[in-house]
Design a protein around this nucleic acid. Structure first.
Lengths: 195, 195
DNA sequence: TAGGCCATGTAACCGGTTACATGATTAG
DNA sequence: CTAATCATGTAACCGGTTACATGGCCTA
């Protein structure tokens, strides 16, 4: 899925500007699905307009540059439906935190501790944001997704709290107190690891 | 996080070839964190070798081309530690399914139904794969991550089963059989849907 | 008066995918 | 006889990010 589809999806819910689309995809209700920057959104919107998938009206403002408020067209809705209906959908969870956890034995305890802290903070921030989205949601779909996120992320956070000590216990030695080579026994794992 | 780091992480657990690294990142224990293709892995490995972060030995085989079995060096471990320690980590969940759910009102019921089906199948496949990873895990970190995945994805799946009717009820009209207004009994769910 | 917000946009760059080339071996 | 698996690698391409340019308004 690409920015084009994201723009159409956001515009299918209500008219907005490129500037606001980016906000939606950064701090707003769409932020935990896709990320997008101006450099991607503005060209996409231009292309979309050329293809007749969206139209825009100029709203003059004093001082600020005129806002280009985009609306989706029937053709745009068709394309949105098509791209969402085609089964290219694969949900991807890219987690650096989990990669750190995987390497726990190789890493000093403080690194893991910091990663857990970041992960917890990130989850809490997400929860707060989604709570906010739910409160102001005007579409059933958005509300459902917000509940989904709240429920799953909440569970995630609880699980992390419950099990963080286990992964910390596996950690290597702290970098600060010197002989950070954990245990010579690690040295020999390569022999049979290939399996 | 990039492929370079991923390669180092995988090599930090055990020696392997570029070919196997790709398998790890496609069907194996690393598949639900990052994706990687040959076109990215082989150049990364070459660069890593030039930088002294990994070494390799050639293992001749008859018929097949010789395997280049890579090992991580002390310098490579340092770099891995550094990139995992720096707080650039942001966990990203890219979900086309959730985008479809967000647009539920705009979409025909059959599209949403298909998306739910795909999502459930994907979750079940993940669960099976992770179960497998857990059984054969040789590192505590891997086991912990597998449990994490099993727990969270399991919860996700259960939640989806419990609430799928709610989002289906919100759907628009079926494209084929025209005014297919769903079952009115679904209409009252929103009250207690939270948590 | 410096910086952040509004609001648009462009150009250079880059990391990664796709698709290909090679070639022997084994399974259907 | 075809397709897949093993195993390496390259080159074209592409989607997206980063970093800029512009410029007036508002806040610290």
């Amino acid at each position: 899925m690409n920015i084009r589809t994201l723009c159409l999806a956001i515009l299918s819910a209500s008219d907005t500007t490129g500037y606001d689309i980016r906000k939606h995809a950064t701090d707003g209700p769409y932020s935990y699905f896709i990320d997008a920057s101006y450099g991607a959104i503005y060209p996409a919107l231009n292309k979309l307009e050329g293809d007749g998938c969206v139209t825009f009206r100029l709203e003059a403002q004093d001082g600020k540059p005129a806002r280009k408020v985009y609306s989706i067209t029937e053709k745009g809705r068709d394309e949105l439906l098509n791209s969402l209906a085609s089964p290219h959908a694969k949900d991807i969870f890219k987690s650096e935190f989990l990669l750190i956890a995987m390497c726990a034995e190789q890493l000093p305890r403080d690194v893991i501790e910091a990663a857990i802290k970041r992960r917890i903070e990130h989850l809490e921030a997400s929860l707060t944001m989604i709570e906010n989205v739910r409160e102001t949601a005007e579409h059933e779909g958005v509300r459902w997704v917000a509940n989904y996120g709240l429920n799953c992320l909440g569970h995630d956070l609880r699980h992390l709290h419950n099990t963080k000590n286990e992964i910390l216990a596996v950690a290597g030695t702290d970098r600060d107190n010197d002989n950070a080579v954990p245990d010579p026994s690690y040295r020999s794992f390569t022999a049979d690891a290939a399996e």
